[in-house]
Structure formats: structure tokens, C-alpha cells
Simulated assay, not measured.
Amino acid sequence: MQTSSGAKLDFGRVALLLVLLGTGWYFWDSPALWPLKLLVVMMHESGHALATLLTGGAVDRITLAANESGACLSRLPSGMMAQVAVYSAGYVGSALAGAFLLLATFRFRLRRLVLGAACLWLAVMGVLYAGDSFTLAFCLGTALVLALAAKYLPDGGVDMLNLFLAAFTALYVAFDLRSDLLHGAVGSASDATLLAHLTPVPSWAWAALWSFVSLALLGLFARWSLRAAPPENMGYGPQRLGRIR
């Protein structure tokens, strides 16, 4: 299997990704996937928090709820462009997290470091910004689970876990798109509605734009990450070139 540029894709990884996407889709309503949905919501709210801090605002607290909703309460910076950036960051925050998860695991072989970084992120967000005991418990508990996985799972198990998390993130973005556009679930407190109040662009257009961007980013990073490694003996003439990753 090749990309348009001629680079070969690792068929095994592509097939596994498709299987995990199908599994996540089929069992989407299973209670077993509830913690993963909350994890993606935390990625979403972390996107808002990071954008707030980068644009000069201040984050007061982040809350998660058992019904898979979340909120980032911030003191927003002045200026329309800065506020548009903050409101938009949630849409792409989870997509970027999934994309970098794929890239770091399969392109740069940083599988355990990825889980370690996720543990640190959850612990920091929980300690600094958790707005209630449920959010704090979820962040610290999930951080502990990921830390144990990073320490005790074999390399293949860590790869599988990271790939499933990335696949589930992609599914969550897709289901958000379906919810916002097909079922009219852009509610009064949604990011798209806040953006519509701030700009002349309607909420459905903002939801479509950022959902498309999120899915495109995931697809681009997945394509890059799932390329097959070149043969070990690749080289030209008597001098062997370094391995390209």
C-alpha cells in the first residue's frame, strides 16, 4: 500500500487501526468506554485552557461530569481574535492529542514516553485546575492507570494502547460532527454557539469547519505515522545512509 508520494504504508498497522476504529464504533455505547470518553473531554477542555494561557488569559477551573460533559472556566483575554482562538481550541485540542499520540508512538518510537507525558498532563491539570472532587479523582486515577500501563505493558501492548486511544479520539471527533450537524445538538452553551455570538459566522458553520480541520489533522498525521520503515540496507554506493524515520 502506497501514498500518493510513493511512500509505503505499513499494512499491518493500517489494518489494526481500521479494526480498532470498527471496534470502538460498534461498542460506542458500552459502559466500558465511558472512561475513554471522559479522557477525550479532558483533552478538549485542556485545549481551551492552553489557548487561554497562550493568549494572556487565566484558567480558573476545569470540570468534568459523569454525563460526559465538561467545562473550562476562564478569564478570557480582551480582543475578538484571542477569544475566537480560545473558543476554537477545544474543537482541535483532542484531535491534536490523538495525532501527536500516533506520531510519537509510530514515527519516533516514543511509546512509553507518550504515556508518561499523558500521566504528567493529567496530574498537572487535576492538581492545578480541577474544579471538583470528581474531576480531580478522574485525572489522578487515569494518570495512575496510564503510568502502570507504561511501566508494565510490553512494547506491543503499549503500541496497541496508544493506537486505540488515537483511534478512539478520531471516533469522538466524528461523533461530535454527527451530533452537531446531523442531530442539531449545537446547544446554547456549545463552543460553536459562543463563536457564532462573537462573529457573523453561524454555529453550524463553525462546527463544520473545526470538525473538518480536526479530522483532516488526524488523517494527515495517521498517514505520516503509519508509513513503513525503510529497509535496513538502504544506501547508495559504498557509504551507507542514515535510517530515515
Rank of each mutant, 00 (worst) to 15 (best):
M1E: 15
S5Q: 13
L9K: 13
F11T: 13
R13T: 03
R13G: 03
V14F: 03
A15Y: 05
L21P: 02
G22Q: 10
T23G: 07
T23M: 00
G24K: 02
W25S: 10
A32H: 09
L39C: 03
E45F: 05
S46L: 00
H48Y: 06
L50R: 05
T52I: 07
G56L: 02
G56T: 09
G57R: 06
V59N: 09
I62E: 04
A65Y: 13
A66P: 00
G70Q: 06
L73W: 13
L76N: 10
P77H: 08
Q83K: 09
S88C: 10
S88H: 04
A89D: 03
G90T: 07
V92R: 05
L96F: 00
F100I: 09
T105H: 03
R109S: 05
V114G: 07
G126I: 03
L128C: 05
L128K: 02
Y129G: 08
A130Y: 06
A130H: 04
F134Q: 11
F134V: 05
F134C: 14
T135Y: 03
A137Y: 01
C139R: 06
A149E: 15
Y152T: 13
P154W: 04
G156L: 04
G157F: 10
L161C: 06
L161Q: 12
N162R: 14
L163Q: 02
L165P: 04
L171A: 04
L171H: 02
F175R: 01
H183D: 12
G187C: 10
S190K: 03
S190V: 07
S190M: 12
A192M: 05
T193D: 11
L194M: 13
L195S: 06
A196Q: 12
H197Y: 11
H197L: 08
P200K: 14
S203P: 13
A205V: 15
S211R: 01
F212G: 04
V213I: 15
A216P: 11
L218E: 07
W224V: 13
A229C: 15
G235N: 12
G237K: 02
P238R: 11
R240Q: 13
L241G: 07
R243P: 00
R243Y: 06
R243F: 07
I244P: 00
R245K: 05
